[in-house]
Design a protein around this nucleic acid. Sequence first.
DNA 1: GATGAATGAGCTTTCATTCAT
DNA 2: AATGAATGAAAGCTCATTCAT
Lengths: 194, 194, 194, 194
Amino acid sequence: MTKKELKRESIIQAALKLFSSNGFHKTTIPDIAKSLGMSVGNLYNYFKSKDVLAKEIIKYTSEVLGQEIRAVNMLDISSKDKIKKIVELYFKMAQEKPEMIEYFLRVYLSHREVFNDGCEGMICVSGFVTEIMIFFDNGVERGELRDQDFFSAFGLFMGYLGGMVFLKGENILPKELNEYIDDISENIYNALKS
Amino acid sequence: MTKKELKRESIIQAALKLFSSNGFHKTTIPDIAKSLGMSVGNLYNYFKSKDVLAKEIIKYTSEVLGQEIRAVNMLDISSKDKIKKIVELYFKMAQEKPEMIEYFLRVYLSHREVFNDGCEGMICVSGFVTEIMIFFDNGVERGELRDQDFFSAFGLFMGYLGGMVFLKGENILPKELNEYIDDISENIYNALKS
Amino acid sequence: MTKKELKRESIIQAALKLFSSNGFHKTTIPDIAKSLGMSVGNLYNYFKSKDVLAKEIIKYTSEVLGQEIRAVNMLDISSKDKIKKIVELYFKMAQEKPEMIEYFLRVYLSHREVFNDGCEGMICVSGFVTEIMIFFDNGVERGELRDQDFFSAFGLFMGYLGGMVFLKGENILPKELNEYIDDISENIYNALKS
Amino acid sequence: MTKKELKRESIIQAALKLFSSNGFHKTTIPDIAKSLGMSVGNLYNYFKSKDVLAKEIIKYTSEVLGQEIRAVNMLDISSKDKIKKIVELYFKMAQEKPEMIEYFLRVYLSHREVFNDGCEGMICVSGFVTEIMIFFDNGVERGELRDQDFFSAFGLFMGYLGGMVFLKGENILPKELNEYIDDISENIYNALKS
DNA sequence: GATGAATGAGCTTTCATTCAT
DNA sequence: AATGAATGAAAGCTCATTCAT
């Protein structure tokens, strides 16, 4: 990676954190620049607008999450075990690098105006969605999961996990996310199994 | 209802539509006033700030959705059938009055800054959450649903439905929401049944 | 005129002066607002962008100049005398309300980017050009002026006068504009007479 | 010419084109550098500021136009014919190398702030003005042109031609510039002849 | 209750210029 | 000579909110 690429990524990470915790509109470009110790003008040498930056972040995040799931997909274990692994890693991320999951939930999902142009459909989240699709297709192929519409399964899996993280973020959950892993994995497996 | 209360509700409904379709920050108070043919100043006689208005909307929406679910709860049918009824009404709403569901997904879920003060936890959505809780407790009581942590069940149910509506809104779903009703009801029932 | 219309016109006049003397790009919206003792935001209630303001100014200026020439056109005097009257009034304006002529020369003529959209061709200066056209057509009709392409005559008349005012503005002219009136009127008449 | 002088001139020509077609303020130093395939920093090794560059361009342009007129001045033809030659070459330039005439009209004439310091009066356009002066003095000397204030004549000549090119640039002229040559030459001659 | 002109802080973005390499 | 990342002041514009009428 060149120096410029490194800086680019450091901007993405700083902006990701700020957008996630303070909201997209409440985070200003000067906020991001200041958190990096760089000037506003220079930040614009790397991303030509705030919206472009937001889109690059969702691509980046989707890629990172996708890679984590790919690692699970490559394990030689049952679909039931994979479900648990994925739930675990999702919650682990939500606890350790909450900015990524939060970005999905609080920035990407709810600022259509920003992502409409350039991130239509799943363009910017394909890195992540593709891996879920692979997980599901494998499970069906191996006879472990019921053969149903992919989106029925995808919505269940991701809506569920996202919902739980949201509830956690709202301080609604009485227990730690970790403690829900078994219940949730079981529920998902029961819903999807053949 | 007094005249004042009627006007209050008409403001809520106008703002609900605009916030849902154009986003919270992209909708200005003058936009709302204009859509109602009233003056900005007068609107402030009904709601003392934009944030307060946003909070009143979520309470209103939660109440309306809660009532719909209450009607299902009162039917003398199995939990399995209730699940289907709830999925149906949720999707029907998403199609006929999409602004309510969209408000949940795109405004309430992602503008913590706004709802933090006054809508902590489930304060502003209790109308809705309570009914889901009643549905679940009944099912457990009647031995139809497995006795698990309520939030495990709630996250599944609502995360799933919200996720599907989101996917629909992004034009990602290949079929109409209606056509997913059976699959989804089955998945939810499989996950929750005892 | 309503209060709002009066204020609108006072903004036009203030901006006209500042744009003319300091240049379009060197004059900021806050400059204009401050010179009027009003807020920036309020100025935008009257003109929705700096460019729109610039276009309204040229229309206004064209109208005012056009009215002055119309008065000459209505006099019952020879074309030769009309030429002199027009030169006189043009120079009088250049001395007493220099901002109008200067706006033509220094803002309108040289900021194509601004006027391209909405002031194509002579859309925004027709008030003025029309009167010159009437002057010329009358002169031809009465046999006093040679029948030639209108723009050949227009370019002569207006290019000449504009050029002189420009030279004056650059402090190049050794004498006052007034002292050129006879020479210039004669030159124009010689060029246009039949 | 040294290599450095060559590069200097290539910068002048590139900037001349961009300033003329896009406007002085809409053309950035990076734009100019990019159009030359050189770096911003290096451009500053040749001209220490944007304003200095603008002033060098007007001197250069004035010199080139002046040389063209000098060639006409040296011909052994009547003043009437010289007028026609000058109109022809002015319009030829306006068509073939429009950037020079446009620079006069759209950059030099209307950015006093820029040229005030260093190009007062006719300092930066003397190359051109001097030749017009020579043309005029010769004509007077030979008894072909009326002896009048030089600026009365200069304003006529140059205001007229500039005005026509401006009208052409605005797409207002119904015919090609060429087709106006005879009319315009005649008008100028009639105005100036003794 | 009703109006809408007025406020002004705050936003995103631009760009002439510098300077370490 | 040459590079181009970096600076930061300054611009145009927005909008929640107020208040005189």
